[in-house]
Design a protein around this nucleic acid. Sequence first.
DNA 1: TATGTGAATGGAAACGTTTCCAATAGGGCT
DNA 2: AGCCCTATTGGAAACGTTTCCATTCACATA
Lengths: 357, 357
Amino acid sequence: MHPVTSATIKDVARVAGCGIATASRVLNNSGPASAEMRERVQRAAHDLGFSFNAAGRALQSRKSMTIGCLVPSLANPVFAEAVQGVQSELLGSGYQLLISCSNYDDDADGTAITTLMENNVDGIIATMVAPDRSSALMQAKQRDIPVSLMFHDPIDGLVTAYVDNFVAAAEVARRFAAFGHKRVGFLALRFSTSDRSRNRYAGFHEQCRASGLAQPTLIEISEDEARHPERLAAILINYPDVTALFASNDFLAIAVQKATRHLGWQVPQDLSVVGFDGIEIGRLLETPLTTIETSPEAMGRQAARSLLNALQGLGLKQRPPLPFSFREGETLAAPNPKRTDDDRVAAQPSSVPPLKI
Amino acid sequence: MHPVTSATIKDVARVAGCGIATASRVLNNSGPASAEMRERVQRAAHDLGFSFNAAGRALQSRKSMTIGCLVPSLANPVFAEAVQGVQSELLGSGYQLLISCSNYDDDADGTAITTLMENNVDGIIATMVAPDRSSALMQAKQRDIPVSLMFHDPIDGLVTAYVDNFVAAAEVARRFAAFGHKRVGFLALRFSTSDRSRNRYAGFHEQCRASGLAQPTLIEISEDEARHPERLAAILINYPDVTALFASNDFLAIAVQKATRHLGWQVPQDLSVVGFDGIEIGRLLETPLTTIETSPEAMGRQAARSLLNALQGLGLKQRPPLPFSFREGETLAAPNPKRTDDDRVAAQPSSVPPLKI
DNA sequence: TATGTGAATGGAAACGTTTCCAATAGGGCT
DNA sequence: AGCCCTATTGGAAACGTTTCCATTCACATA
């Protein structure tokens, strides 16, 4: 029925017996046309199975109707969900989504942004290692390509959809303090390449201070260590006096739970663990994960919405941070005085007197 | 430094003092040019910060250097990982990835494919509700746009990257039989819209027969039921004689574990559970999930590779199914004779005599 | 010297669209 | 009848490329 090679607007004009300009006007509803002409053009377009050629359009109108999206990785469900959010917000807007992944690599970030720009994307949504010092991103701004970030805390001149990592992390410290923990730790992956992780630590650190806790121990591990519970266990055993651990994401928190089993520790009796993100699976664990619950999907949606507004000429506006909530699981409890005593005394002299409860 | 609006090849030619054709030849390495001319053009291009305009290229060459990818959802990590695989395989090939999600909707599948074609994608990678009867996909084939599927078992005329769901599921039945299970069940989500799920059931069913098990009970649940353990528990309680459950994916299997806790059952003592997919988190559970381990990432890679080959004119060839492995977790064990006896006798008369072990 | 060869080069068409602008026609006015 | 105004309409340029083809030129050959 339909031809192998699709019809062009020229074909439509020919069949409708009119000029190309007229056909274009009718098909785009972008100018005057008599009712009869409308009818003829519509009919011809339908009969020919006409559809616009995006390349021709893009070339002429200097709009590709395409939005570029750069995330570190789709293997991380947090980012995958965010992209899903972007995608669903874009649905019906006429914009298509061009995807790129950096694998947490700073250089890859730059080339990806450049590639997106070469593809004439009309806007960019990104989560990067260091958006603040990305020259490629600067160039995008210079060319008036609107940019909307996800997950990043606000950075000068860049709009972002985010949760307030500092405040959220502070909440965790507050909870730790409320349960009577004295020595707590922060477990991080990719600390150097994630401003989120750093901001969480900052908020956590600050509130520990404010709540009278000892300065939290920063434990940074490699991806490999995160994946092998026995290796993670070998690390955790070096911090026997830490009674509560704040993991910079839920995966890490779950890995910690696994690792503690190698050590014969119980969560939360011997070690409290709190995660960040609020991934669904955390609820289904035998010991449901206590965590900061966020909605990556909502971040994606907000970033997309901001961008769409900007593309409609409404300006690019920073919105307030998205809400988070403290999800009460079962991995946070008061410290076990016994273990704390024994281990701490055995392991090292401490400035904090042993708890007597 | 760089101009707000980027330089065109015309500018390069002007600065280099040559014709557009020559500049194009040099920049593309697509024709003769003297060493001196090469130098001049390269230099001009560099000085101007020139980069090709994808739209102009696409229009002229009728190649968009873009590949369309359609998956049901990125919120499902299995698909997200597959897309990640596609993405990484495409990296460096010069092709960009245009993404679309259908949310498991048949109609959305069709319009998504059509939209991708309107965007002149050079190839399509897809996982759909029903690729075999998608007229949009037919059209793509007619227009000689290569199509490569993911996850689907082979369908006439369509190349796919997959694991043999039938064989893999049969392996589960074999294991169930080896442990002495007699009455087993298959738990499915979206059975009607997933050929994968159906093929798994078919293989499971067939091997149950071959191994002398009773015909497996098919339990189909809604997404909502999957998400609420208590609701899932209410369903499971209706099948007291089932001692082993094969869940059509890992999430479901984990949800079942959660649900059994509501019922006071122990996994695997009171109920064995086996999943499908082999998601990472399954290993980290307190009771590690027994499952069929697959690599969605590898599927994505293979699908992308096949497509790239086709785009290089090497033809689109069906490759053998990707390997899977049976991951021994701790959620599969011999049935508990006590519970089995009591429940079965109490619940209903059975053609299978009570076990005496 | 005339001729043929090959390499290097540039002009111009074409890809499919939008849009500026001019042309046409119909209708109401003086 | 002559004229202006408005609503339709179509021609053609432009967007940035690639590529066909013709031109030019240097050089070797007869």
